[in-house]
Design a protein around this nucleic acid. Structure first.
Length: 416
RNA sequence: GGAGAAGUGGGUGAGCGGCUGAAACCACAUCCCUGCUAAGGAUGCGUAUGGGUAACUGUACCGAGAGUUCGAAUCUCUCCUUCUCCA
């Protein structure tokens, strides 16, 4: 959630920034007006309540002293009616305000480039040069089927479209990648955690998936529980509604989970292969930090993900997302795109975001700085999407005869 | 699935309709004393939000929500969680 006090104080600047992200000006204006109205309503209610409280105290004294209370009772009863009206007004405003505020995305940083969609993202640098093939490289689905690594039909048979099954070396490689990535992140100072794959509404509101994006989530029938779309949700919410001590920051964590997404708006995109599946594996990095540390940690996370790709000898590039491609909760995001020779293009394999205090305010994650409680900054990033890494290995390590080499760093994980 | 018991501040735990935002103890912080490593004393010490430069102060919060009442941590209802017993 954005800082309403800041909005109130510096309305023009904040609304200008939000408009860069495509938020309707009228919407922001409305938020401001509602906020002001709520403040008035609250103050009004509290004054009445204070009066009621003091009369109630008097009431107790009268009774103890055996005085006549009928006149006082009349006053108190009359005030009660007024209070209830004031409370109603306040509650309605509160609810309206919350609905609006929760649907407003984070304020993009000033250095986020303007742009409409992913085509306007800005490349920062390339790492490793794609190798030249002496033959026409195949796409991963062909390689996956030819090598018997992935069975797309049987995934559909078991569930529905956009599900797949890994066999043999395909399955082993997934497991090796997960272990390799977790170990890599551990060495970089991220503590490994294992978390539930189902979370409640509060957790999803905390990280910003709800209330706006319920259509993208799988919801349990009859329960207020959802399958996680990313480990970011359970891991960040681990400290929901807590006040951490300054010494325990930064908290750097890494988790492997399956992720589940309905891909509601993605009809027709990447229908073939395992680029866009309803269920996929991902190793995630999450950090909670003091505000002044978050940028350094952000850089650390980007390099951590990039270094994994480098260790796997996979060419990739680092891209700064433009306003149009920026997610709901992010103040700024860097994507890592891996080179896919079969597709002859770079494709997203990691997305690292600093949400600053946006999620912390929603999830109420604070730390004690001396006497004051301050919102932490939260960061998250993939390191990496396992399925897409497997895709990248298949396409980059393919040979002319259709066989696939195994990256050196993974061999120990495969007993090779 | 059935039957009971319980959920209070960082922890233990009192309170069972007004004098309680909450005793006491522990932990913690600052200061003092002492002087030798362990103890003594004083003060402070929850969260959120509004007002105020500040001191301070209004309001809300005793698992969550609703209700009874002039007034609820305390009474009622629903839900959640934990523990014990039964199937």
């Amino acid at each position: 959630m954005i800082d309403l006090k800041l909005l109130q104080k510096d309305f023009d600047a904040i609304s200008t920034k939000l408009m860069r992200k495509g938020v309707d000006a009228a919407f922001i204006e409305n938020l401001k007006l509602k906020n002001e109205a709520l403040k008035k309503a609250k103050s009004n209610f509290e004054t009445l309540q204070a009066l009621q409280n003091s009369m109630s105290k008097e009431f107790g004294m009268y009774k103890r002293e055996g005085k006549d209370i009928s006149e006082l009772k009349q006053r108190v009863d009359a005030n009660k009616i007024v209070i209830n009206e004031a409370l109603d007004i306040q509650r309605n405003l509160q609810e309206e305000l919350e609905n609006i505020a929760m649907a407003i995305p984070n304020i993009p940083d000033d250095n986020v480039p303007d742009g409409k969609d992913e085509n306007d993202n800005v490349e920062i640098k390339k790492v490793l040069t794609p190798k030249e093939f002496s033959f026409t490289p195949k796409e991963h689905w062909e390689l996956a089927e030819d090598n018997g690594w992935i069975d797309f039909e049987r995934g559909v048979k078991l569930a529905t479209s956009r599900f797949s099954v890994s066999f043999g070396m395909g399955a082993k490689l997934e497991r090796a990648l997960i272990n390799f990535m977790l170990n890599f992140n551990s060495k970089r100072g991220f503590e490994e955690v294992s978390v539930p794959a189902l979370v409640n509404r509060t957790a999803l509101e905390g990280t910003g998936q709800l209330p706006k994006f319920e259509d993208d989530l799988y919801k349990m029938d009859g329960l207020d529980l959802f399958l996680i779309p990313t480990a970011e949700v359970p891991v960040t919410n681990l400290y929901q509604d807590e006040i951490l001590s300054a010494e325990e920051l930064p908290k750097k964590m890494t988790a492997y989970t399956s992720c589940f997404r309905k891909e509601a708006g993605a009809a027709g995109r990447d229908t073939r292969g395992m680029i866009r599946q309803h269920q996929f594996h991902k190793v995630e990095l999450v950090a909670l930090s003091k505000p002044e540390e978050s940028e350094a940690i952000f850089d650390d996370m980007v390099s951590c993900a990039s270094d994994i790709l480098t260790a796997l000898e996979l060419p990739h590039r680092i891209v700064n997302l433009c306003t149009g491609d920026l997610g709901f909760s992010a103040a700024h995001t860097t994507d890592i795109e891996v080179w896919l020779p079969g597709q002859d293009q770079y494709r997203e394999i990691s997305s690292i975001s600093n949400t600053r205090d946006f999620q912390a305010r929603r999830a109420k994650i604070r730390y004690k700085d001396g006497k004051k409680n301050i919102m932490v900054h939260t960061l998250n990033g993939s390191s990496l999407a396992v399925g897409r890494t497997l895709v990248a290995i298949m396409e980059n390590y393919q040979n002319e005869d259709g066989s696939i080499d195994i990256p050196e760093v993974l061999k120990p994980y495969l007993g090779m």
